[in-house]
Amino acid sequence: SKICLVCGDEASGCHYGVVTCGSCKVFFKRAVEGQHNYLCAGRNDCIIDKIRRKNCPACRLQKCLQAGMNLGARKS
């Protein structure tokens, strides 16, 4: 099975251009559409994995963007 390129959980498919799990898919959509201005309490290098993905939305969003997630991406 495929793994989420953001948190490493089991992926549910290709979302916004990137193979991700459902949790990261929903997080990314809400983060971008809600125009959240997340700030990292650390050094913008928090570990984002299945267990810690909820700890720092700033670093999670950064990881989504680095993976290439794009709200305008067509479903493939």
Rank of each mutant, 00 (worst) to 15 (best):
C14F: 05
C21Q: 02
K63L: 07
C40G: 00
L65D: 09
I3Q: 04
T20S: 12
I51F: 08
D45P: 05
K75E: 15
G17T: 08
I51Y: 15
G17M: 09
L5E: 08
F28S: 02
C21V: 00
S1T: 07
V19Q: 12
A11L: 04
C4D: 02
C64W: 02
C46Q: 00
R74K: 14
A58H: 06
C24D: 03
A41C: 12
N44S: 12
M69S: 02
I47Q: 11
I3G: 04
N70K: 15
G68Y: 01
I3N: 12
A41G: 14
R43F: 10
L65W: 11
G13C: 02
Y16L: 06
V32T: 15
C64N: 00
G17I: 03
N37E: 15
C14E: 12
N37R: 13
A58P: 06
N70L: 07
I3F: 10
S23T: 04
E10T: 11
A67P: 01
I48G: 11
G68C: 03
A67H: 11
A31E: 12
Y38M: 06
E10R: 06
K25W: 07
K75F: 04
V26G: 12
G13K: 14
C21Y: 01
V19R: 12
C7H: 01
I48Y: 04
V18L: 09
S1Q: 13
N44E: 10
C59T: 01
G34Q: 10
G17F: 05
C21H: 00
C64M: 12
N55Y: 04
H15D: 06
L39D: 15
T20D: 02
K54R: 07
R43A: 10
I48S: 05
R43H: 11
G68E: 05
N44F: 08
C14Y: 08
G8Q: 07
F27N: 00
V26Y: 13
C40P: 00
K29S: 10
K63I: 06
A41W: 05
V18P: 04
L5K: 15
T20V: 14
E10S: 11
E33V: 12
D45N: 10
L65S: 12
L5T: 11
G72D: 14
M69I: 02
S23Q: 12
V19S: 15
G72A: 08
E10I: 04
T20K: 01
R53A: 14
S76L: 12
K63F: 04
P57V: 05
S12W: 04
K2E: 08
C7L: 00
H36I: 12
G13H: 12
G68T: 02
G8S: 09
N70G: 07
P57E: 10
L5A: 10
N55P: 05
C24A: 00
C40K: 01
L39S: 10
Q66M: 08
V19C: 06
F28N: 01
S1F: 10
H36R: 12
F28L: 03
L39W: 06
L65R: 09
I51D: 07
N55S: 09
G42N: 11
A41F: 03
Q35M: 05
L5H: 03
C24Q: 00
K25F: 06
H15S: 08
M69D: 03
R74Q: 08
N37W: 03
Q66D: 14
A67R: 09
F27D: 01
